[in-house]
Design a protein around this nucleic acid. Structure first.
Lengths: 111, 111
DNA sequence: CAGTATCCCGCGTGATACTG
DNA sequence: CAGTATCACGCGGGATACTG
């Protein structure tokens, strides 16, 4: 296996899907709250700039994990949420969470 | 949930374990070949510098996923491999790979 | 052979203001 | 309200030489 082959390896593809500082948190909100309007999502994730949040959403959209739904034209009203493909990740995420809770001592994060 | 809580969320902790350009490939080799001597690992991953490879190994070691075993004193002979905790990740990785193969169309990576 | 010391660069991310 | 345009910066990663 050379590096190029590895680029195509499923584990790496999966990780690249989630690479991005805010993507896991974005998906977390979709899993728990369903579709969310852009500004509301932004309100829930207070430390990220609009530009970056939009970039991350766009990347997730290009991965076909997230769907963007524009409701009416003016003023713009845009909802983001999981696609059907995105919803199939849930069991994988759950197994990851179980493993992590069991194996990784819950580190205390300093303020 | 605020951002600080999210830092402690299992999904995020898991992803941080693998964040690092070469970590998945390093783990791939350990899963397939068991313990590997440092230089041999370096030979298998030709595009990474020694410095960076050592950094990534050190981070994995600090996560207690990888273990470093020094065999004798001179010349140094150091083996790296999965810890017991590291080995428990395998089923999780396998589920991730299955999901990815099923759901993500195998992108062609340009040369 | 394994590991360290420097120096360097690009990219992901951030702050802010502007537009339709 | 959703999205774009600039400008800027820190840090993860890379190249190279050196050390015990």
């Amino acid at each position: 296996m050379n590096y190029k082959e590895f680029e195509n390896c499923p584990l790496n593809i999966f990780l690249k899907l989630f690479t991005g500082k805010w993507k896991p948190l974005i998906l977390y909100h979709f899993f728990h709250y369903g579709d969310i309007r852009f500004t509301e999502l932004w309100r829930k994730i207070p430390k990220v700039s609009k530009k970056v949040l939009l970039e991350q959403l766009k990347e997730l959209e290009e991965s076909e994990i997230v769907e963007r739904r524009q409701v009416n034209t003016f003023p713009p009203e845009v909802f983001y949420g999981l696609s059907e493909k995105g919803k199939t990740i849930l069991p994988v995420i759950m197994q990851i969470e179980e493993w992590t809770k069991k194996m990784i001592p819950s580190n205390t994060v300093e303020e």
